[in-house]
Simulated assay, not measured.
Amino acid sequence: MQRSNPAPAGAGPLIVVMGPTASGKSQLALDLARARDGVVINADAMQVYADLRIVTARPSEADEAAAPHRLYGVRPAEAVWSAADWAAAARAEVAAAHRAGRLPLITGGTGLYIRALVEGLSDLPAIPQDLRDEVRALGLTGGVPALKAALAPLDPKAAQRLADPQRLARALEVVRATGRSLADWQRAHPPAGGHAGPVFTIALMPDAGTRDRAIAGRFVKMLEMGAADEVAAFLARGLDPQAVPLMKAVGVPEIGAWLAGEVSRDEMLERGRIATRQYAKRQMTWIRNQAHINLGAHEQYSECLASRIFLEIDRFLLTLGH
């Protein structure tokens, strides 16, 4: 397809490809990029880090060579990125794609990242440094249980809903600093800074049986590709599991326990499958709650589905004069 004319900064079209783990969204984004002169921009919170290419299922070097890929493996594990940090970097990559006359394709499984780019984020209140230090120390010493226990009497809904230590810490900081829950604060301060141009969102939503079959062989394949050596080298760095999100990536705790002799290979594989299924289920819950899905496919990506998706995207772009 001929390259489109450059769009004004922030006003050009944006394609979002979302779906749970093992739905084929990365392959769809790659096929779109190759066929429609696109740039694949990562929206997976684990794949932004340079470590654990196999475990986090980052695109292969061959895939990255087949079409431009951005924001994959760009941060060391110790340099934690917030959703706001990622959104700023993604906006820059989207603008660069538009300047080059290319089609930006956002894909990944981190819903908060996608929302931050498309809709924007609410400004958070200023948090005193001593409070930040106090909450961080609580997280480092007591982990998720301690953060939940501290948050529960102040914001019980958030304490029950959240499981990620960074998000729990943020909710605790806000309620202690302002006396208001994070949800109340966000309602009073609507999101700003979202994408100004048209957005076309594709959601791959295979049923549970299809997801489970795709996930079943995932850990075995990862091990065949060298995941155990990858995890062993990563754990040998002695990073803080409470401060480094990548330490909790699906596959790291499970393979780590096997390497330490705490579980058998079969138990490790089963734990990995269960953790991956649970993660995919959470992703599906988030996707189902999104109001602005232009094309929903209740199946895994395949060549049969590709022609339908390509046709709808071409129609979308034609209405914009691309």
Rank of each mutant, 00 (worst) to 15 (best):
G321K: 13
A275L: 06
V220K: 13
G108Y: 03
R265N: 12
G139E: 03
A83E: 13
D31W: 09
R282S: 03
D123K: 13
I274M: 10
A260F: 12
V74I: 11
S122Y: 11
T56G: 04
A196K: 10
Q186L: 09
L138M: 01
S302H: 06
D31I: 00
L124N: 04
V144I: 07
A22E: 03
G101I: 14
Q160D: 08
A249I: 05
A203C: 03
I313V: 02
S302V: 04
A306C: 02
N289K: 15
A137G: 03
A87I: 01
P145R: 02
P104F: 03
G139N: 02
A208H: 14
I114E: 02
A260H: 15
V39D: 04
H189P: 15
P68R: 06
L140Q: 15
D266M: 10
D240Q: 09
E303Y: 08
P156Y: 00
A65L: 06
V17D: 07
A97L: 02
R99T: 12
T110I: 12
N5C: 13
R180F: 10
R75V: 11
A188P: 10
Q186R: 13
F219A: 15
A57Y: 06
Q166P: 13
Y113W: 08
G38I: 08
T21D: 03
R265A: 10
M222P: 12
V231A: 04
V174E: 15
Q2H: 08
R167C: 03
L320W: 08
H98G: 00
P68T: 06
A183F: 15
A50V: 05
R75H: 15
A137H: 00
A228C: 08
A243T: 11
A100T: 07
